[in-house]
């Protein structure tokens, strides 16, 4: 049997500890051990982006990170996006402009979109589409997703 690893990391600012086996992914642990089920599994092979989280400030697919690799890191998931009852402008614009249908892709898209706007507060439509190319959506056809992102960007710039 493989050895269990004792892992300590921060998730949305809170310290968490857990035991894991080497083959468990960060996504497995976020969902099944920490019970933060906002992060979704669409493919488990890096193709769909539903599992997107921030790992030490970097946008990554949590299905492509082993839980053991996350020792000592800081992880941000969708659960940390709103401040209490106050939704993030991205979340609000997705609701108002119908940027989601079934919602499976939405947490990953919101995390990825926030990472974009932190680097580039005024993306063009093309830039937004390329940045989000790793987030697949089988419902919306992407148009309303992109519109929601650009509207949130404008709002956040105070435009």
């Amino acid at each position: 049997m493989s050895r269990k690893h004792h892992i300590t990391l921060q998730v949305n600012g809170d310290e968490h500890e857990f035991l894991c086996e080497p083959q468990q992914t960060l996504l497995d642990v976020i969902r099944d051990e920490l019970m933060l089920t906002g992060t979704k599994e669409g493919c488990a092979t890096g193709d769909c982006g539903a599992c997107s989280v921030m790992l030490d400030g970097r946008l990554v697919c949590s299905c492509l990170v082993l839980a053991v690799e996350a020792e000592g890191t800081s992880v941000e998931t969708i659960e940390g996006m709103a401040s209490g009852d106050r939704l993030h402008p991205l979340q609000r614009n997705f609701l108002e402009l119908n940027g989601l249908q079934c919602g499976i892709c939405t947490p990953g898209i919101l995390i990825a979109a926030r990472a974009l706007l932190e680097k580039n507060p005024n993306p063009t439509e093309t830039e937004a589409r390329y940045w989000l190319a790793g987030n697949l959506c089988r419902c919306t056809g992407y148009d309303k997703v992109i519109r929601s992102v650009l509207a949130a960007a404008a709002e956040m710039r105070g435009a």
Binding site: G46, G49, S52, L55, R58, L59, V60, C61, L64, V65, A112, A115, W131, A133, G134, N135
Partner: peptide
């Protein structure tokens, strides 16, 4: 190489 997420790793 893949998406922004993939290139992040």
């Amino acid at each position: 190489i893949g998406s922004i997420q993939v290139k992040g790793r």
